[in-house]
Design a protein around this nucleic acid. Structure first.
Length: 542
DNA sequence: CATTATGAGCCG
DNA sequence: TCGGCTCAT
C-alpha cells in the first residue's frame, strides 16, 4: 500500500505541525467562556447525544474519547460542555473548521514548502530556512534563545527536571554537533517561532515534530501534546523505533499492522530489522516490503509537496438505521435539499445492499433541481434491477433497500486561470504592484467594465455562482485566493508575494491584505473537460 | 439498527 | 479513467 522511497541525498529539516484538539479550540475561540472547561465537539445530538469528533484535553482526563456518544461523555464527565457542529441544509457543516485551518496554513506556509495534510495539520520543509539560519545566525551566537524553543523535547537528550531547559539550550548551541543536528536545532527555533506566531494571530495552540523526514516528524508531533514540540536527532532514531509499537506508525494502524503482529510476530517497528528486504517483499509485495524495510530504519524519502489546498472536495450525509430513506419521495426530497448550493461532479447513493455510485457530471448551466431528480431516477432504476423482480412495486423495492447515504464530490481539479484579463496584469512584474492594481481595480465601478470584455461573461458566471450558492470567496487549485468585489473577481497568489515585501508594509496594511487575500480554504475546482466556473488571478511573479 | 464527514493514495 | 479498497482523524 505505501510506496517505498529512499531518503534524498542531503539531510532535510521537516516539521509536522498538528493543531491540538482543533475543533474544540475553534469553538473555544468563538466562545472564550469555554476555555478551561472540559469541552467536546459533537455532530448532531438527538441520537444518544451525538457523536464526538473532537475532545479537549480537560475532558480527556476523564476518559472521554473521540467517537464516543454525547450521553456517554456526559456520564463519565458530567460537567463536559458539548458543542454542536453547525448544521446546514440538514447536515453537519465543517466549513467553520476548514476556514480556521486556512488561517493557520497561511502562517505556516511562510517559511518553506508547505503541504496541507489535513484540515488541521501540515508538513513543512524547512531545509532552506534552516541552512540559511545556520550560515547567518546559528544558535551558538544567539544571546538569547526563546523560552518556547527551550521547552522543546529533544529525543535522546537525557534531562533532569529543573535542568531541562538548560540542557536543551546546551544541545541547541553545541558547536561540536554534526551538521544535521545543527540544522535540526535551527528547525526547532523556526518552528517555535511559527507556533508562537500562530498562537498570537489565531489564538490556536499546536504541537510539532521536527526531524529529517515526514514520517519521523509526524511521529514526534504526537509525542508531547498539547502546545509542545519534539525534535528527533538522527542519533535517537534507532532507539525510538526499537520500542515503538507498529500500530503507532502511520499506515500501520490497520490490517497491515495487524498482519505484522499476527503473521511475523513483529510488535515494535524495530523488530522488523530482523527481516531481510526479500523476506518482507515475499510477504507484502515489492513496494510495501521495501517500504517496511525502510521505515524500520527510519528511512522515508517522501517529499513535502507544495500544496496548500485539498485535492478534492466532497460532502455527504448518512441516514443511519431507522433514518434510512424508505420512500422515493423522501429520497428525492433529501437529494434536492442536499444538492442545493453544491456542484457535484458525481453523486453517489448507497443502500442497505450493494453500493451504488453514479457518476453524473454537472455543468454550470445544468439545472440543479432537475439533476437531482435524475440522480434519484438512476437510483430507482438501480434498485429495480437489483431487486431481481422480487416485486414490481417500486415503493416496496425502495422500502426493502432504503437509501442510507447521499454524497457528492469534485476531484481531478484543474487550474482554470486562462483569460485575457491576464494581459492586464502582465505589465506588472512586481507582485506587490500587481496587488495594488488589483485593489484599485476592485474599487472601480461597473462602468469601467467596458474595457474588460470578459467581465460580461464573468457576470454571468457570478449569477451561476448565486444559483449554486458558491458566492463566497474562494481559492483556485493553485492556492490563488479570489474575492468578488463590484462585479469583478480578483485574486492574488500569496505564495508569489515576496515575504520581505509584505513585512515592510505598515501593520494595518498587512492586516488588510491578510484579511482580504485570505489563505486557501477550499479549492475552486472544475471537472476536467467541463469547466464550471472561471476565475482570474494575477500572473506569476518573475 | 447508529463511529460521521471528509480526505489521501494504491491497485487492478 | 474509474471503481474498489485501505488508512486516517
Amino acid at each position: 500500500m505505501p510506496i517505498a522511497r529512499p531518503e534524498p541525498q542531503n539531510a532535510r529539516v521537516i516539521a509536522h505541525v498538528d493543531m491540538d484538539c482543533f475543533y474544540v479550540q475553534v469553538e473555544q475561540r468563538k466562545n472564550p467562556e469555554l476555555r478551561g472547561l472540559p469541552t467536546a465537539v459533537v455532530q448532531y445530538n438527538s441520537w444518544k447525544g451525538g457523536g464526538l469528533i473532537a475532545v479537549g484535553y480537560e475532558a480527556r482526563k476523564f476518559g472521554v474519547k473521540r467517537s464516543m456518544r454525547g450521553d456517554e461523555a456526559k456520564r463519565i464527565c458530567p460537567n463536559i460542555q458539548l458543542i454542536q457542529v453547525p448544521v446546514a441544509r440538514g447536515k453537519a457543516d465543517l466549513n467553520l473548521y476548514r476556514n480556521a485551518g486556512s488561517e493557520v496554513v497561511s502562517i505556516l506556509a511562510t517559511k518553506g514548502r508547505c503541504e496541507r495534510a489535513s484540515i488541521d495539520e501540515v508538513y513543512l520543509d524547512l531545509t532552506d530556512a534552516a541552512e540559511m539560519m545556520l550560515s547567518e545566525t546559528p544558535p551558538e551566537v544567539l544571546e538569547e534563545i526563546d523560552e518556547e524553543v527551550l521547552k522543546s523535547h529533544v529525543l535522546g537528550l537525557h534531562v533532569e527536571g529543573n535542568e531541562r531547559e538548560e540542557n536543551v539550550r546546551e544541545w541547541l548551541r553545541r558547536s561540536d554537533a554534526d551538521h544535521q543536528d545543527k540544522l535540526l536545532a535551527c528547525g526547532a527555533i523556526i518552528v517555535a517561532q511559527l507556533r508562537m506566531k500562530v498562537l498570537y494571530e489565531t489564538k490556536f495552540t499546536c504541537s510539532a515534530g521536527i526531524a529529517h523526514n515526514k514520517m519521523l516528524a509526524k511521529l514526534a508531533s504526537a509525542m508531547h501534546k498539547p502546545a509542545q514540540q519534539t525534535v528527533v536527532p538522527f542519533s535517537s532514531v534507532k532507539d525510538l523505533l526499537a520500542s515503538l509499537p507498529v500500530k503507532k506508525m502511520k499506515q500501520l494502524g490497520g490490517k497491515l499492522g495487524s498482519s505484522l503482529q499476527a503473521d511475523l510476530g513483529v510488535n515494535n517497528v524495530g523488530d522488523l530489522l530482523q527481516f531481510s528486504q526479500e523476506k518482507l517483499q515475499e510477504h507484502y509485495g515489492v513496494n510495501t516490503g521495501t517500504w517496511l524495510w525502510n521505515i524500520s530504519r527510519g528511512i522515508s524519502g517522501d517529499a513535502v509537496v507544495d500544496r496548500l489546498l485539498p485535492k478534492s472536495h466532497g460532502c455527504g450525509k448518512t441516514f443511519p438505521g431507522p433514518q434510512a430513506l424508505k420512500t422515493i419521495a423522501s429520497g428525492t426530497c433529501s437529494i434536492l435539499k442536499f444538492l442545493q448550493g453544491k456542484i457535484p461532479s458525481s453523486t453517489s447513493l448507497s443502500d442497505a445492499g450493494e453500493f451504488h455510485k453514479e457518476s453524473l457530471p454537472l455543468s454550470s448551466t445544468d439545472d440543479v433541481q432537475s439533476k437531482g431528480c435524475t440522480v434519484m431516477d438512476e437510483e430507482v432504476k438501480h434498485k429495480e434491477l437489483a431487486s431481481e423482480a422480487a416485486s414490481n412495486d417500486i415503493d416496496t423495492i425502495f422500502q426493502a433497500k432504503p437509501l442510507k447515504r447521499i454524497g457528492s464530490s469534485v476531484g481531478k481539479t484543474k487550474d482554470v486561470r486562462k483569460s485575457s484579463i491576464l494581459k492586464f496584469f502582465q505589465s506588472s512584474n512586481s507582485s506587490f504592484h500587481t496587488m495594488n492594481q488589483a485593489c484599485e481595480r476592485s474599487s472601480l465601478d461597473q462602468a469601467s467594465s467596458s474595457s474588460f470584455p470578459e467581465c460580461e461573461e464573468h457576470s454571468d458566471l457570478e449569477q451561476i455562482d448565486e444559483q449554486v450558492g458558491f458566492s463566497e470567496d474562494r481559492i483556485d487549485s493553485d492556492g490563488h485566493h479570489n474575492q468578488t468585489r463590484n462585479g469583478y473577481t480578483w485574486g492574488i497568489n500569496m505564495e508569489n508575494i515576496d515575504p520581505s515585501v509584505l513585512d515592510e508594509l505598515p501593520m494595518e496594511i498587512q492586516r488588510e491584505i491578510r484579511e482580504w487575500f485570505h489563505p486557501p480554504k477550499r479549492a475552486n475546482t472544475s471537472r476536467k473537460g467541463s469547466t464550471i466556473v472561471h476565475y482570474f488571478s494575477p500572473v506569476k511573479k518573475g
